[in-house]
Structure formats: structure tokens, C-alpha cells
Design a protein around this nucleic acid. Structure first.
Lengths: 66, 66
DNA sequence: TTGTAGACTACTGTCGACA
DNA sequence: ATGTCGACAGTAGTCTACA
């Protein structure tokens, strides 16, 4: 409960910089909106595939999220 | 079946550069040896925590593995 | 030293609904 | 627009054992 919290913080920060709602990001990533919410609050640990999907949706490098 | 394969390739490359066996790495990361084997062959998708554990055991940056 | 198999637990990720 | 809940299927990760 620390790595995933840090990840969630970065995720939210980048998402807001892009002025996207959780729902818009979810659609871009083809992930569930409620799951984005869980991730941003550090309640879930994404797999590497999910990290890549998020990075693609956010138009940043995956390494930029870790 | 592509992202995880690429990850597995990087993992094996870095591990061999450090001259570690799968078993030694597993011990350093506190992960299972057979699981390292699965990862290197792209049969499993690690979570972000696992990526950090591997990076720590390999003494590289997590972003270096993605 | 590594791959593989099978069985198992825990958790990721989805979905519908409501505040 | 976001948080949360409960239920669910699929899979991450462990462990023992054998080639």
C-alpha cells in the first residue's frame, strides 16, 4: 500500500494535466471508469499491460508513469 | 501476448548482465523461482509491485524495465 | 540451472447501481 | 464527474515435484 498509492497520484496528476475526466480516460484506455477511480486512490495494483494501456490513453511513455 | 513478452526479454537480459541465476534473483526479490521463469517467457503479466520488487532485486530503476 | 505441470489462494479488472 | 458497494470471472503469484 505505497507503490500503488504513488502510482495513483502520478496517474491523477497526468490525467488532470491533460484535462481529462476519469470517464474520458477510461474510454481512451478501454478500461472501466470505476477502476480508474480505484487506481487513482491506490486501491488496486495495475498489471504491466494496464500500465501500457493507461500510458497510451494519456499519450505518455509507460516509463513516465513508474 | 506481446507487452509481457517484451518485458520478459528485458528481464532476462538484465538478469544475465548481472550474472544472476533465476533462483538467485528470486531470492533477492522474494519471489518464486518458477514465477521468474514464467515472467521471462512472457507467460505472466507482473503487477506494478512485482516490477518494483524485480527492479530492486536487480538494482536498476523500475522505469528501466518498462 | 531452467522449464513445466497441477493445484491452490488472493487479487485484478468488469459491471450495474446509487449516492 | 467521482466514490463506493457487491458480485463475478479471470489471472497473478505460490508451492511441490520431476525432467
Amino acid at each position: 500500500m505505497e507503490i500503488e498509492q504513488a502510482f495513483g497520484n502520478v496517474l491523477r496528476k497526468v490525467r488532470l494535466e491533460k484535462s481529462l475526466s476519469q470517464e474520458e480516460l477510461a474510454h481512451l484506455c478501454e478500461l472501466d471508469r470505476t477502476y480508474i477511480s480505484l487506481l487513482e486512490r491506490g486501491k488496486r495494483k495495475p498489471t504491466i499491460n494496464t500500465i501500457f494501456a493507461l500510458a497510451t490513453g494519456l499519450n505518455v511513455l509507460p516509463s513516465n508513469l513508474v
